[in-house]
Computed example of a mutant assay.
Amino acid sequence: MLIARGTTADADRIAALHTASWRSAYAALLPAAYLHGPVAEEHRETWRGRTAGLAEGDTDRLLLIADEGGELHGFVYLCTAADGRVHVDNLHVRPDRVGTGLGRSLLRRGLAWAAATHPGRDVFLEVLRGNDRAIVFYERQGGLRTAERPLRLAPDIVVDEVEYTWPAAQVGRPGEDGPEV
């Protein structure tokens, strides 16, 4: 499995994997009409925008993809937040790759990048309440539950999200899969 930086050319396949991941993980949490309706186009627009202008030395954001034989198996996207922390905005693996260690490897590489590029800063992410598998995963990876709040996904869709944080001192110990990014 090759883990490398993502580029503009990866936008559509990242969006497709992101949508497949949501449809699998959020089937019981979000309306089917949303998951099988506008979410695919929303993800396409998001990833085309996010990948535009990605550069090798970018210190504000990182996109890593896991590819094998030209097939995308997972990705992680981190960016700096307005409050100075580093945000793991997305971490997804193909539904048939969940539980294989790929998510852990991507997260650890993202944490290693954060430690090297933004030393002394906390790293955080949000997960939908009810996504129990992901919550267990983030807790096993050392994430600490630091907040809960509502999230508006669409005008008529509000769900609760849980924030997990890796304190700066912990981010500096990326584990076996870092810091090769």
Rank of each mutant, 00 (worst) to 15 (best):
R108A: 08
I14K: 07
L54K: 06
T117Q: 05
S105E: 15
R44C: 00
T7Y: 05
T146E: 15
L102Q: 03
R13G: 11
G142R: 05
W113H: 07
G37W: 09
D96L: 04
S24V: 15
Y26R: 11
V93N: 08
H18Y: 07
P31H: 04
A154E: 14
T100E: 08
L35Y: 12
A20S: 08
G69D: 06
A33V: 02
G101D: 14
T46W: 15
H92V: 01
A28D: 14
E176Y: 06
I157R: 11
A33W: 07
D60M: 05
G99S: 05
D67G: 05
P167M: 08
D156I: 04
D160F: 14
Y26L: 07
E148D: 05
G103F: 13
V127T: 13
H43T: 03
P38I: 01
G74M: 12
S105F: 11
V93L: 14
T100P: 00
T165N: 07
V39R: 15
A147S: 06
G103Q: 06
L125M: 06
A169H: 03
T165C: 08
R109A: 02
P38D: 11
I157V: 07
E176I: 09
P150T: 09
P31I: 02
D89K: 09
I135K: 10
Q141N: 02
Y26K: 12
A115E: 13
V39W: 11
A11F: 00
S105D: 12
T7N: 06
W47F: 06
P167R: 03
A15P: 10
A112Q: 05
G99H: 10
L106R: 05
L2P: 13
A4C: 15
L35T: 02
F137H: 02
W113Y: 10
A55Q: 11
L102W: 08
V86S: 10
E176S: 15
E176R: 15
F124W: 04
P155Q: 09
G178E: 13
V136T: 10
G178W: 12
T59H: 07
C79E: 15
R23L: 04
R173S: 14
H118C: 09
G49M: 10
P174D: 06
L125Y: 04
V123Y: 00
D83E: 03
Y164M: 11
I135G: 11
G6V: 02
T19K: 09
V158M: 02
V162P: 13
E126F: 09
D58K: 00
L102G: 02
V136Y: 02
V93G: 12
R50N: 10
